[in-house]
Nucleic acid binder design. Structure first.
Length: 858
RNA sequence: GGGCGCGUAGCUCAGCUGGUCAGAGCGCUGCCCUUACAAGGCAGAUGUCGGGGGUUCGACUCCCUCCGCGCCCACCA
């Protein structure tokens, strides 16, 4: 309570390091796991993808969540605020390839002495290494990357409990993922499927519907001439002539008069002489191309639909590396009217990539006179994997699938969650309504959670992929490539009569969809789980509603028959001033988060983040950092001043001006509290900031002389108590946003941490303002301060317009206003006169308000 | 093509369930060494609230429609 602890020259410098260390030492944010579920507020923190580059977008969304965490903590909830690292999956694998200059080749044996060559450029060839070596490298790289995040999160002041961290590739996550998988498998909710699958030929892996992305790319229509049933040509436009050998039918709309006579008959493909049926299907669009399309296995997802619904033949030609496979024409399924000609044409294509094959087949068709006119260039949307560089192909393969619940069930779960802002729910519902097929959770990769599954090998060495052997739940985690299948010895691996491991890993979402279960100890810490699950809050960005959010809802529904959390707070993107999403590639040195914090201070950066409205995009604006820094400095100076006046929180507030200020402050607390309860941190800081500046400009000016004792002890005591209560309240209101500077000021005169102090109470402030005991007509009224401030503003304006110093004496002020407002002003008249250096104030009842200021002669 | 969001001072944005809502900050201009703060403080100017209809005594705020921007989704012939 001693003023001696208030520094003469308060500064923001070094606050981050000092308080970061103190909070760690004192365990300020440690989760007390003895608390019951209803006392806990648990947060399903987004585990950042450690492969990504740090950029200011990270600071923004995590800070927004942190303000909510800090608010809940001050409200008395025990906040469970863990942090995960998403180090599982293809992004990390790719990053590791680049950083270490290696490539996984599972056929190689483990080399304990392997040293990676280091970063490689685009054109250099990475060194092939064994799967265990590669996974080891992934672990090392991930650890370095995580350190960077830890430092950044600490610098920006996230109130995370660092004793609760997890990795999506770690043993807990692996156990949870494998257990979740086994339980779904036993309920027949996870199943093995052989089906057409979206396939990335670069990464040679399947991808799920949710990770598709349309991109506009150049292409061309090629008009091919098929031979119709009567010998007349049928012209078919296609952008993928290289798939002609995979053609299994021609299709037109059932109502298309041009083609109606042909339905049920057959056509013959050019070049390959394959007889294909002419079929009708409503998905065919009469005004696209010539109105009749060739169906190939498979050129796009529509082909898959047609193929399935029309029961067509299967003639796949694209293999998993994106090249056309070798074929023997004339063999069953590949009958041709001229097998030799088909073979010689096809031999020109086999082994080539689809791109190369397209160029060649166009030449062949042109030479044979089977193409009409030159290719007509167009730009069209093509499906890509969102991380991929080549268009997706569709191949038939074995995959693990998870069934979705009924759409109605999923929609109902969506309604059980509070969405902030509410319209984000629509995105979820749109996605649910557009779901197609089940969830493919299989990735043909190396660095990920393996399926706890093996397959029997029969005596002839054939693998029975439809009779999986699953692990015992008690044995998890398992790696089927190193652990033998239950009931087998490891020397039976890959032998006739033995077993073989499932070679694939789970989709990264199959793990992160269990983030609530992983973070709360579902498998490893049932006691913690009971105290924290279902969680209270999932904060995340809107672009992954269809993935992370949606999948998490699915998993919690299956595992626990509940929603995973009560609230979903969906954030926008960080965009640069041109409205483009702030991307890693566009980042420059000025955007380096650590440098930004160094330059402006963590509180300033947090100020910028907290001003981003929930769900709205946030513009990256260094101007906002400056304002935030200014606010933090103002808080230091105003606090020092208020404490220098003798602020205290014990005493009675009697003066009308002081009661008015406390009453307004009580209203502010009520408003900020309500805003935070709607997860609207932005409104809370906006209102608080606005109050604070007028508190400094007006109230402090009006009250300072009285606080010094100019008006006697009683007036001074009232002022000092009001100042103390206000300062403590404002520190509390700002604490979630500016944790460093508020903690610094708190430490000058209060015990403990502001971040463990009680959130300000509106009722207590109104009570201190004397709302309860007030005589009629003497109720505390915010308008007293407002009116006095308005007149003080007029006085300042008069001085400013006269180009005089603010210290200039004022001979007299005449205030004309309504009787009501004059009565308000009268209650603060002494303070007003003192602050404005006013000799006499005359109050004149009038209909038209006016203030006349007579300055003393210069 | 469908859905959602957004269009308010030069810039970034507040304006909740219609009646001091035409605002804040930045920027701009002017003034002031004022003993909390000169990398400050005080004050000032600026807008047909995207366009057009409609409901109403009254609309930035509700309805319709159009325009522009962004994001998500959609069957790539």
């Amino acid at each position: 309570m001693s003023e001696r602890r208030v520094p003469d020259k308060p500064s923001l410098d070094g606050l981050e390091a000092r308080w970061r260390a103190r909070w760690a030492d004192e365990g300020t944010y440690r989760f007390d796991r003895t608390r019951e579920r209803h006392e806990v507020f648990s947060i399903d923190t987004p585990p950042p993808t450690v492969s990504g580059t740090l950029h200011p977008g990270h600071l923004c969304s995590y800070t927004q969540t942190d303000t909510v965490a800090r608010y809940q903590r001050m409200r008395g909830r025990e906040v469970f605020y863990p942090m995960g690292w998403d180090d599982n999956g293809l992004n990390v694998e790719r990053r590791v390839q680049i950083l270490t200059g290696t490539r996984c080749d599972p056929s190689l044996p483990y080399d304990p002495d392997f040293r990676p060559p280091g970063p490689v450029g685009r054109r250099e060839r990475p060194v092939p290494v064994s799967r265990p070596n590669f996974v080891e490298l992934c672990g090392q790289v991930v650890e370095q990357l995580e350190q960077g995040y830890f430092d950044l999160w600490s610098d920006i002041g996230l109130s995370v409990d660092w004793s609760h961290t997890y990795r999506t590739i770690g043993p807990e996550a692996t156990r949870a993922s494998q257990r979740g998988f086994l339980r779904l498998f036993r309920r027949d909710l996870a199943y093995r499927s052989e089906a057409p699958t979206l396939w990335d030929v670069d990464f040679r892996t399947a991808v799920a519907q949710a990770e598709l992305q349309d991109r506009d790319v150049p292409g061309a229509y090629h008009r091919l001439r098929f031979e119709g049933p009567d010998g007349a040509p049928i012209r078919v436009d296609t952008t993928r002539p290289e798939l002609l050998p995979a053609c299994v039918a021609l299709v037109a709309h059932p109502n298309d008069e041009r083609y109606r006579p042909l339905f049920g008959k057959a056509a013959r493909t050019p070049l390959f002489g394959v007889e294909v049926p002419i079929v009708a299907h409503p998905l065919a669009t009469p005004d696209k191309g010539t109105g009749i399309a060739m169906i190939c296995t498979f050129g796009d997802t529509t082909d898959v639909t047609w193929w399935r619904e029309l029961g067509l033949a299967l003639r796949p030609v694209v293999q998993r590396d994106g090249r056309l496979r070798p074929l023997t024409w004339g063999a069953p399924g590949w009958e041709s009217s001229d097998p030799a000609a088909a073979q010689s044409a096809y031999d020109e294509l086999a082994g080539r990539t689809v791109r190369q094959a397209q160029a060649r087949i166009v030449e062949l068709l042109a030479e044979a006179g089977l193409m009409e006119g030159p290719p007509r260039p167009i730009t069209h949307p093509v499906k890509f994997w969102e991380n991929g560089t080549h268009p997706l192909e569709i191949v038939t393969s074995h995959q693990w699938m998870i069934r979705y619940p009924d759409k109605e069930v999923l929609l109902e779960r969506g309604r059980q969650i509070n969405w902030w802002p509410d319209f984000m729910r629509v995105r979820y519902e749109n996605w649910v309504n557009g779901l197609q097929g089940d969830w493919n959770v299989t990735r043909q990769r190396f660095f990920g959670v393996p399926f706890p599954v093996w397959y029997p090998v029969d005596d002839d060495g054939r693998v029975d992929y439809l009779a999986p052997i699953v692990a015992d739940e008690a044995a998890l985690p398992v790696d089927p490539t190193t652990d033998p299948a239950p009931g087998y010895d490891d020397d039976q691996r890959d032998k006739p009569g033995g077993f073989t491991a499932d070679p694939d890993v789970m989709d990264t979402w199959a793990t992160s969809s269990l983030s609530p279960q992983i973070a709360t100890g579902w498998v490893d810490d049932p006691d913690l789980f009971d105290r924290t699950f279902p969680m209270d809050l999932r904060p995340q960005a809107h672009d992954i509603i269809r993935t992370w959010l949606f999948y998490t809802v699915v998993r919690a529904h299956y595992e626990h028959g509940s929603v995973p959390w009560a609230n979903a707070a969906v954030a926008g993107f960080i965009v640069d001033p041109d409205r483009k999403k702030l991307s890693k590639s566009a980042a420059n040195a000025a955007d380096d988060p650590a440098q930004l914090i160094g330059r402006y201070g963590a509180d300033a950066v947090r100020y910028w983040a907290a001003n981003g409205r929930p769900g709205m995009d946030v513009v990256f604006d260094e101007g906002q950092f400056r304002i935030g820094r200014k606010l933090a400095i103002k808080l230091l100076n105003a606090s020092r001043f208020a404490l220098g006046l003798g602020s205290t929180t014990a005493g009675e507030v009697t003066e009308p001006l002081d009661r008015s200020m406390l009453s307004a402050l009580g209203d502010l607390v009520a408003e900020a509290t309500a805003a935070f309860d709607r997860f609207d941190y932005a409104r809370a800081i906006e209102r608080t900031e606005s109050f604070f500046w007028s508190f400094c400009d007006d109230y402090l000016e009006l009250v300072k002389n009285r606080a010094y004792g100019a008006d006697g002890d009683a007036g001074a005591a009232s002022a000092r108590t009001a100042l103390g209560l206000a300062l403590r309240t404002l520190l509390g209101l700002f604490a979630p946003f500016l944790p460093f500077v508020t903690e610094e000021v708190w430490s000058w005169w209060q015990e403990g941490s502001v971040h463990r102090s009680a959130w300000p109470s509106a009722d207590a402030l109104h009570q201190a303002a004397g709302a309860d005991a007030a005589a009629p007509g003497d109720e505390p009224d915010p308008a007293v301060l407002a009116t006095a401030a308005a007149v003080l503003g007029e006085v300042r304006r008069a001085k400013s317009e006269a180009k005089r110093s603010m210290r200039t004496d004022v001979s007299s002020v005449t205030v004309a206003d309504t009787a009501d407002r004059l009565a308000l002003l009268e209650r603060a008249l002494d303070d007003l006169r003192s602050a404005g250096r006013i000799g006499a104030v005359e109050l004149v009842p009038a209909d038209q308000p006016a203030v006349v200021v007579a300055l003393a002669p210069a």
